[in-house]
């Protein structure tokens, strides 16, 4: 019995932000389902750690800062044709309204919103996205669920969600699909501003009683990359242990 509609055999998948957290877990889980991975990030040592954990052969690793055009060029010049992309690279910075500077907004929007847009454009123009390929963008429930100090982050993820819908419409003629996943809090390196005690208290607000794990986002990405979701495009999949129910 090897019926499995979620299998990724024969698919070449690019994962950004693969040196940590959700991207790392996504790359590893995809490799377990048979995909050939190209992983990217900036930190060589941590990216290599992920690489070592990939199951199977033929994977590749590329260092690039995708917030710069030169980084996007460098990356795309070395990529094969792709069946899927999972954009996990992202940053968060919490600043209350009074402390926001144009420079900090630009910096954060650059990596969370402009980088996935420009990278997608580059892949599309260079014809690196095969027909029927699947593009997955890691957004956040923060796109519309407010918390103190999150204005810059929220707006970057809101922009990303709208981008995904516009993109899904435009690339549908090529039968390329684009979807976003918006997780609630996942235990990674992303938010060191909260202490462990504060995180524990905050996690009790989740109806399912805890924060999420990186692989719980990775498995959703796998669904969206696989042929099981062939008729799914432009959707924003919420994975948040029930946080935004009320």
């Amino acid at each position: 019995m090897n019926y499995n509609p979620f299998i990724l055999n024969g698919k070449t998948i690019l994962v950004t932000g693969a040196s940590s957290g959700i991207g790392k877990s996504t790359a590893i889980e995809c490799s377990k389902l048979g995909a050939k991975l190209i992983i990217t990030g900036r930190n060589e040592q941590r990216l290599k750690e992920t690489f070592e954990l990939l199951v199977g052969n033929d994977h590749a690793l590329l260092l690039a800062d995708i917030s710069e055009a030169t980084g996007i060029d460098l990356l795309s010049d070395n990529l094969p044709q792709l069946n899927g992309v999972v954009h996990c690279a992202g940053v968060s910075k919490r600043l209350p309204l009074k402390f926001i500077k144009e420079e900090s907004v630009s910096e954060l929007h650059k990596i969370n919103f402009i980088a996935p847009l420009m990278l997608t454009q580059k892949l599309y123009k260079k014809k690196l996205l095969l027909p029927e390929s699947s593009l997955v963008y890691i957004s956040s429930v923060a796109s519309s669920y407010a918390s103190i100090g999150s204005i810059m982050y929220m707006s970057s993820k809101g922009a990303l969600n709208s981008f995904v819908k516009g993109l899904a419409f435009e690339v549908s003629t090529m039968k390329i699909r684009a979807n976003a996943i918006q997780p609630g809090m996942i235990l990674t390196e992303l938010s060191p501003i909260l202490s462990d005690d504060d995180k524990l208290k905050d996690s009790e607000l989740y109806p399912l009683g805890r924060y999420g794990k990186p692989e719980e986002v990775a498995w959703a990405a796998i669904y969206l990359l696989s042929d099981a979701s062939k008729w799914v495009t432009g959707s924003i999949l919420t994975i948040d242990g029930g946080l935004t129910l009320r």
Binding site: P96, K98, P192, I193, L194, S195
Partner: peptide
């Protein structure tokens, strides 16, 4: 968050949650 942001802005120091 404002005190953390103020210290970041004025002194270029980010005090993370567990230290704060």
């Amino acid at each position: 968050l404002s005190v953390i942001a103020m210290i970041d802005e004025e002194y270029d120091i980010v005090i993370e949650g567990n230290d704060f």
